[in-house]
Design a protein around this nucleic acid. Structure first.
Length: 213
DNA sequence: CAGAAGATCATCT
DNA sequence: GATGATCTTCTGT
């Protein structure tokens, strides 16, 4: 469904929202709106899938301390952390936790809400369902790149706005790494809207993760 | 400085 | 389900 941009109450989320435990932020971001003012118009998507990266997750970029790339993870909560991977894709994260403590939530998928024509023109030949299903596709469709690293998601042109608050029962919560790390509270959690066709997990690539030990 | 891995995607069988 | 594309970042020597 497409909605006129000026009909949406696009109120940015407060910085305090992000200055909390990463897992809480990852859960609460589901249902929030990702908004980007592009030259051709505003695009909006409802966040349907996230992944939490804490400083105790061995898979986190910040696990082994600060580097030039991951420095934004240690900085202001509510900023963006954008990195380039696999030589082709950008990934968008929201920085969490108090300043000085590393944490981030990877935005893995959104349901297109407004600006559909702009999203489509940035993803030529793709079905609507594939416009922003997956972290790399999401950044492509929304025109997000490294220039957005450290962008302020609470006030900027690229921002996260309040949306529908979903009950716990409407969400799927999946652990992504094995027991050893889990015992040290180093779990990586993925959150998604239950049954949503817009989420990237739970298809094609069969249940990876949770298989390592 | 070389080497390897990587928070992925599209395409093919 | 397997593979290639493509290049940055990090690590070790």
């Amino acid at each position: 469904m497409s909605v006129a941009t000026d009909q949406l109450p696009l109120r940015p989320v407060a910085r305090a929202f992000f200055a909390r435990p990463t897992l809480d932020v990852a859960r609460d971001l589901i249902g929030c709106l990702l908004v980007h003012d592009l030259p051709e118009g505003t695009v909006v998507g409802s966040i349907v899938e996230t992944e939490a990266y804490t400083d105790r997750d061995p898979g986190s970029h910040a696990f082994s301390g600060m580097t030039a790339r991951n420095a934004p993870m240690f900085e202001e909560p509510g900023n963006a952390y954008v990195y380039f991977t696999y030589g082709m894709h950008h990934c968008l994260n929201a920085v969490t936790e108090e300043t000085g403590r590393a944490g981030a939530v990877l935005l893995r998928a959104v349901e297109p809400i407004a600006g559909l024509e702009h999203l489509r023109s940035r993803r030529p030949g793709r079905r609507d369902r594939d416009l922003a299903r997956g972290p790399g596709r999401l950044t492509l469709a929304f025109g997000i790149g490294r220039e957005h690293d450290r962008a302020d998601l609470t006030t900027g042109v690229l921002r996260i706005c309040t949306g529908e608050r979903l009950p716990e029962a409407a969400l799927v919560r999946t652990a992504r790494i094995g027991l050893a790390a889990a015992q040290q509270d180093g779990r990586r959690w993925r959150f998604a809207v239950k049954g949503s066709p817009w989420v990237s997990s739970g298809r094609s690539t069969t249940a990876r993760g949770s298989r390592r030990s």
